[in-house]
Amino acid sequence: MALEVSHVVGGYSQIPVLKDISFDVQDGELVGLIGLNGAGKSTTINHVIGLLTPHKGTITLNGVTIAQDSQAYKQQIAYIPETPVLYQELTLREHLELTMMAYDLDHDVAWATAHELLKTFRLDNKLDWFPANFSKGMKQKVMIVCAFLTQAKLFIIDEPFLGLDPLAVNDLLQLIEKRKQAGASILMSTHVLDTAQRYCDRFVLLHDGQVKTEGTLSELQAALPEAGESLNDIYLSMTKVDRS
């Protein structure tokens, strides 16, 4: 079992946003984290990457928690934020190099991977650019390249599909598929439900800081038989219950 989130209560302040949530991500599995704005997706992710400390509960990654050994924990994680953040003073080349240094990667092997990724995302001629000169989509691609440079066991991807061009979305999905085959786990939050429906193995539906349901699409369909066929329908019906 790769990632296990168990009974986590947490948030930015003393008032908890997450109210006792539990789910897991298995090896070689792509789990979609689905929820409305403010449902707690980003808060969950911030807990998993270690930016926030849970008030209660534990988050274990291949048997290690962040409190036990933060370096061993973080070594296994690669993160792609929703809003790309880059070091303003570093060029693209230096961002890649910094990633290699931080994850202690073999430079020759990593650069070979890097060049391949750069070519895929059409960034190979922009190695000496500063972030200020990149568009938002390009910055997002830089984030993807940096993340997939690593040999992380868990990829955490926050809303990857908005802002990327269709070609890049397709390339990203292929990259995810390849890493899944190699045994890595992926936790991905998104609002683009039809893409999620096609690619995710399992779904965690968050609502108001709680896990409403989780499971594969067929499990969800079985649990809510009158809701409809697609993830979209299931999700809408689930939120409707709450609104009325």
């Binding site: 990457i49 370096q71 973080k74 934020p81 953040v85 070091y87 990633t99 931080a102």
Partner: peptide, 8 residues
Amino acid sequence: VVFTHVYP
């Protein structure tokens, strides 16, 4: 910059 915290 979030990576300052995420990097191992």
